[in-house]
Design a protein around this nucleic acid. Structure first.
Lengths: 216, 216
DNA sequence: CAATAAAATTACAGTAGCTGCACACATGCG
DNA sequence: CGCATGTGTGCAGCTACTGTAATTTTATTG
């Protein structure tokens, strides 16, 4: 109890990380081969050389191993950049922030893409993923509120500022879902940032906005 | 097979309907009393005087009895009114259409409100509900596309018209989620249509639109 | 290195949601 | 009444998931 806190690179931590990725990859491979529904937790455990109980100690649910253990949380730097961003396009900046967090988490792009395609085509997983994102909404709303404050907006002059922040987050969710589907299901020939610009352009066209970045 | 289709008001149909609502109400009452997680299917079956097997024949899943059997589908009249609507506010009209379908399905308003509050506070149910709505998205997109065509828009001049329709549906989903949460969790002091107007006003403010219904 | 504390893994038993199947029963219809 | 069809039920079984207690593995300390 008096010793220094456990190192991140001890044998223990390395073994843990190894087991986790081993299970994640085994699960992904099995699902791509047999389909999500046909894959049982026991199959994954056998392929990953752990007991079923250990599996659940790691991921909690069957879906967990496919979604990854950690929710996509942005870096502090990105967070600060967002709050103090001076652009007029809050929605676009927020979408960018979320995207960066999502992509920056998985170093292996092939694995990322396989995983995303599996999620996109599996209702169970997609539903769970949306739930996870919804759990982030509260903190995102807080974040948007901070930015609004930083830009001089206040509850005194705008009583429903909290609602506005909440709606920004909700709209960002829509844009994300649309873009994800476009990117991983339909195939979008272009870069991610082009796709996001396209999506945000659509929003502007629909709501009759002059377009993001308009200056009165 | 040559006889006329089974009457809607035969003994059989009436018994079926009775059993269904009996189970739905029993489930709702149990969940409000003990909490969703503590209620087991067996408890609902005992209260509803049916076997577990029959329960699953009716609802398929535990969640099903709480969400209601049929997804909220608008009436043909409302559908036609939407497609040929001439207002400039597609988003608002679509949100109104969905709301009407949702409210018009449950005659008993107390039951509706209890159910919605339970759904809203139960992640499992909320997630499932979102999945159900997502299943309607394809047909809604088609509907929006029809309206766009009726207003003279065509793929020839706007290649990404399908994307635009898809985004309209996605945005409507955001507005619905926001409004539902506001209505059933926070308490909104006002009529539903006021709430929807408020929500749509927020969207306009965020995207920099001159506002829905603007006439140049 | 040996002893000991802490953490990880495991087996085992049990619960709950859900399904296929076969059989009994009720209803609608001639 | 007699038959076809729809409906309810019991049962066996599968899968996801959890609590518990025992066992093994890693880390630390004397």
């Amino acid at each position: 109890m008096t010793s220094r806190p456990p190192l991140d690179d001890g044998l223990r931590a390395r073994k843990r990380a190894a087991t986790q990725t081993r299970l994640e990859r085994a699960a992904l491979a099995l699902a791509l081969e047999h389909g999500y529904d046909s894959v049982t937790v026991d199959m994954i455990c056998e392929a990953g050389l752990v007991s079923q109980r250990t599996f659940f100690n790691y991921f909690g649910t069957k879906e967990g191993v496919f979604l990854g253990t950690a929710p996509p949380v942005p870096s502090d730097a990105d967070l600060a950049a967002f709050v103090h961003g001076t652009g007029p396009d809050i929605l676009g900046d927020l979408v960018g922030l979320i995207t960066a967090a999502l992509v920056g988490r998985e170093p292996d792009l092939d694995v990322l893409k396989s995983r995303r395609m599996l999620i996109e085509r599996t209702p169970d997983l997609l539903s769970l993923e949306n739930t996870r994102i919804a759990e982030l909404e509260e903190s995102l709303t807080q974040l948007v509120l901070e930015r609004l404050h930083a830009r001089g907006r206040a509850e005194e002059s705008t009583p429903d500022l909290g609602d506005e922040a909440c709606m920004v987050v909700a709209l960002a969710g829509s844009v994300m879902r649309f873009s994800m589907q476009k990117w991983f299901c339909a195939g979008f020939a272009g870069t991610p940032s082009e796709l996001l610009r396209h999506s945000l352009g659509l929003v502007g066209r629909i709501t009759g906005a002059a377009g993001p970045g308009v200056r009165p």
